[in-house]
Amino acid sequence: MNKKKKIRNINISQIIKYYLPITGKISILHRITGILMVILIPIFLIFFQFILKNKKNFNKFIFLTHNIYIKIIFFFINEIFLYHIFSGFRYIIMDINLGIEKKSSKIFSYITIIISILLNFFLITNY
């Protein structure tokens, strides 16, 4: 007898308790960072235009970057972009049939997170 597994929908309140492997979390986080990038890019362009308008605005921006809270904000914004880029590379590598096994996919997921965070620390500490 062939028993089929019963498929059931879960409630939104059950999502937090639902076990999801790291590869699934990486996939969801890649989508979230993609949405955040779509929202942040126009804001950055407007902000960049304001900075380049004159030297006074540029000097204000340089002064603000010495504030620790602004550096923390820049850290998270950089992390969004870097994580999305490296996660995208991971998906491109998976498209050519590398790292699609369960174990290697899990390793690639951790490598994606580690590389994006380390590169972000390197970028933040050097400016």
Rank of each mutant, 00 (worst) to 15 (best):
I100P: 01
G24K: 15
I41W: 10
N57D: 14
Y91M: 07
H30N: 03
E79P: 00
F74C: 14
R31A: 08
G24T: 13
I72K: 09
E101W: 03
H66P: 02
P42K: 12
I68S: 12
F86H: 13
I77L: 05
I68H: 08
K55I: 12
I124E: 15
T33D: 03
R31Y: 06
T65Q: 12
I16Q: 08
T65K: 08
S105Y: 04
I26Y: 01
I80D: 11
I51F: 01
Y18K: 13
I77A: 11
I73Y: 14
N67W: 13
Y83M: 00
Y127K: 11
Y110A: 05
F81V: 06
I22V: 14
E101T: 07
K56V: 07
N54L: 10
K17F: 02
H30L: 03
M37E: 04
R8P: 00
D95M: 02
M1D: 07
K17V: 04
N2F: 05
T112N: 11
I68E: 06
F50V: 08
F76P: 06
I93H: 00
F63C: 13
I32H: 01
F76I: 09
F50K: 11
P42E: 14
F75C: 07
I12K: 10
P21S: 00
I124K: 12
I68G: 00
M37C: 11
Y91R: 02
N54E: 10
D95A: 08
H66K: 10
I22L: 10
S105W: 01
Y110G: 06
K56P: 00
I10V: 01
K25E: 00
V38F: 13
M37W: 03
I26K: 10
Y110C: 05
F50D: 04
F44Q: 01
N59L: 06
F44G: 03
F47G: 14
S109Q: 12
I114K: 08
F74D: 11
I12E: 12
R31L: 10
E101R: 06
I113G: 03
K5Q: 02
I35P: 12
E79W: 04
K53P: 00
S27G: 01
T23Q: 14
I72F: 09
N2E: 05
Q14A: 11
